[in-house]
Simulated assay, not measured.
Amino acid sequence: MVNGGTLNPDAVVVPAVSVASVRRALYVRLRRLALGNYYRLVHLNYDRELLATRQQTRGGTVRSYELYNRHGRDEMLAALEARCGPESVVYDVGANVGVYALALAAGEPDRHVVAVEPAPVVADQLSANVRANGFGDRIAVRRCGLGAESGERDFCVSTYTELSGFDRASATRWEADVAAVEPVPVERLDDLIAEAAPPDVIKIDVEGEAASVLRGGRDTLERHRPTILLEPHSDGLDGAEPDVCRELLTDAGYEIAVQDDFWIAEPTSTSAIT
């Protein structure tokens, strides 16, 4: 403040606040409120198995306790469906509540899906959706994570369940909080297929852990040469995952086609390049 041409030392200087920053703060608060309420309602629906709605997906119509058709029309799901035959074995790594697994099983009774989900609550929701569709003979739910080494790791359960992961940074994106930290089993992909049929196609969406999945599946990539659809994550994370995944796939003899939000990795030959 200027009083008679001099600076008033008692004046309070209020910093200018841009309209953009106010709008951003309001948007963040509204998003947190909306998502928080949505997840609370969805958890109630799953817990009591009240309403399994019919939802149209790229693979056909399924029932789900989700309250809206989340990811059912995704381009990645369309690309995955296009690369699966009627009797394909598909590994859905990071299956979440089963959107992709259900869609892939919907129209093909002889297709087999191994749905891998480490989050205990989410794996329960996945199992509920499998039951609602009567797909117990088509979808095998594996309650574990996949990584470079077998063992046990702490898993961060997010208040926005789809963000849950082994990395706290992943679980706290979009203003979410870590609701709990629970130890979960982790297996190598190479060990997992010793107990099941080898994959024709693998989908990987694991919130920043894709490189670990690939490291634990080196033998699978070299011997069985599955097609891989991978969603590389860098949003809110350290940003290194895409580069590491690209190197691992290239070294294993895969050619990568980059789409808007995911990669399609096809083997360049029937055996790995050495």
Score class of each variant (00 low, 15 high):
S21K: 10
L26I: 04
D47Y: 11
A194H: 01
V116D: 05
P118Y: 09
V157A: 12
R58T: 13
S212Y: 07
E75P: 11
R153W: 05
L189I: 05
E187R: 13
A180T: 03
A115K: 06
A103M: 01
R223I: 14
L146K: 13
Y68G: 03
V28A: 15
E117M: 12
G147C: 11
I193A: 02
A79V: 01
D10V: 03
A82D: 10
A179T: 02
V97N: 00
T172D: 08
P198G: 04
G216C: 05
L33R: 15
V93H: 09
R143M: 10
R188G: 12
P15W: 00
W263G: 10
I228G: 01
G134F: 00
A123C: 10
L146H: 10
V28K: 14
N96Q: 04
A257M: 11
P267C: 04
P198D: 09
S64H: 09
S64L: 05
E81G: 00
A119Y: 00
E49N: 13
G208V: 13
R142H: 15
V141K: 06
A79H: 14
L163I: 00
V99T: 15
R138F: 00
E195Q: 12
E207W: 09
Y27W: 13
Y160G: 00
R173I: 12
E255F: 14
V90T: 04
Y68T: 05
P183L: 09
R153S: 11
V42P: 02
F135D: 07
D137L: 01
M76G: 05
V206I: 08
R58S: 10
G94R: 01
L214A: 00
Q55W: 10
R73N: 14
L44A: 14
P267Y: 01
D243C: 03
V97Q: 04
T161R: 01
S88R: 10
D110C: 10
H43W: 06
P183K: 07
L44K: 06
E162K: 03
V206F: 01
F262C: 05
D190M: 07
R225A: 11
I202F: 08
H112I: 06
P183T: 06
H43G: 14
L80E: 07
E182P: 03
L146S: 11
V22P: 06
V93R: 00
Y39N: 11
G208H: 09
Y27L: 13
V181Q: 11
I202T: 08
R29C: 13
F166W: 03
R23V: 14
H233Q: 14
R173K: 15
Y100M: 09
I139P: 06
D191V: 03
D190L: 07
A210C: 08
V206P: 10
D238W: 08
P120H: 12
E81S: 06
V130Y: 07
Q55K: 02
P185C: 03
G239S: 09
A78K: 04
L230T: 07
R173L: 09
Y65I: 03
V122S: 12
V17H: 09
